Amino acid sequence: MENKDSYLETSKAERSMWLMKCPALVSRSFKNPRPSSIPTSSSPPTPQAVAKVILSIDPRVSNDDNDSSSPQFTMELVGAEIGDVPKRYSMDMSKDLVPMSVFSESSQGKLSVEGKILNKFDMRPHDENIENYGKLCRERTNKYMTKSRQIQVIDNDNGTHMRPMPGMMIATVFNEKKKTPTKTSETKRTRRDRGEMEDIMFKLFERRPNWTLRQLIQETDQPEQFLKDILKDLCIYNNKGTNQGSYELKPEYKKASDDSNP
């Protein structure tokens, strides 16, 4: 007898869906929406709307290949729980979209096609919020770069656990001789949180406008490919000129940084 769960459910395969890349601040607010109603024994809680999308079309412009005639998408976050996070964002729609579909897997292991990607968007703070967004990123960077130190009181103050027991010193020396020296460049680096790394990058470019990839790896101790992905979103690469081979912030982020400095 065949197992029905081994089949792929395709009843929703033609449903249109959007793929959106958003900042870490917005992503966290999407993941923790508050219920809009109190659940009862007979009804589950109703999820609260987290954002609304505004589509702007200029009827005076003819429908040609110019970017100015394309529909403009804007997203506004709703709800008081987002705090100081900017509420208005521009959604840049990509035109070179590779055909993609969305799949899901249930707790029982059943696979389903949830729909196909109709539009792909890159989300960025709206021009009117870019200064506040840059200020918020710098504040978070300062918070992450401030090291907190803790003092712990030891209950056992006779120092017994701090002295090596008989035989421990010999074993330690023996193990150190057998260890193979590891090169620093080969040490596996641990990724930080994406939002935390973006804040650190803004702080570094405040200190200096141009950085090479090698300098940023040494400064942040992060994996090379991880840094390249962040630099692709935040920076431009100089192929020529006096700063050839280095990265600098994109104009929209650089403007916010310059305006905030006295």
Results as ranks from 00 to 15, higher is better:
residue 22 C to I: 13
residue 73 F to H: 10
residue 38 I to T: 14
residue 35 P to F: 05
residue 251 P to L: 06
residue 89 Y to C: 00
residue 136 L to M: 09
residue 117 I to P: 00
residue 60 R to L: 14
residue 110 K to D: 00
residue 163 R to Q: 15
residue 192 R to W: 12
residue 88 R to A: 03
residue 26 V to I: 09
residue 238 N to K: 13
residue 211 W to D: 00
residue 38 I to H: 13
residue 241 G to H: 08
residue 187 T to F: 15
residue 116 K to D: 03
residue 112 S to Y: 02
residue 99 P to S: 04
residue 236 I to G: 09
residue 45 P to M: 02
residue 138 R to M: 12
residue 170 I to T: 14
residue 73 F to M: 08
residue 85 V to D: 01
residue 50 V to H: 01
residue 130 I to R: 02
residue 228 K to T: 05
residue 126 H to N: 09
residue 174 F to Q: 15
residue 201 M to A: 02
residue 29 S to Q: 08
residue 132 N to Y: 06
residue 78 V to A: 04
residue 19 L to M: 04
residue 119 N to V: 04
residue 116 K to E: 02
residue 168 M to K: 15
residue 231 L to C: 06
residue 3 N to E: 08
residue 44 P to S: 07
residue 52 K to D: 08
residue 159 G to Q: 04
residue 121 F to D: 00
residue 124 R to A: 07
residue 48 Q to A: 11
residue 228 K to E: 13
residue 51 A to W: 00
residue 43 S to P: 03
residue 186 E to Q: 10
residue 83 G to E: 11
residue 113 V to D: 00
residue 148 S to I: 14
residue 35 P to S: 10
residue 81 E to L: 06
residue 44 P to Y: 07
residue 87 K to G: 06
residue 116 K to I: 03
residue 34 R to L: 13
residue 190 T to G: 05
residue 56 S to L: 15
residue 221 D to A: 08
residue 236 I to L: 15
residue 40 T to I: 06
residue 92 D to I: 08
residue 148 S to C: 12
residue 188 K to R: 13
residue 128 E to Y: 05
residue 91 M to Y: 00
residue 69 S to F: 05
residue 42 S to K: 15
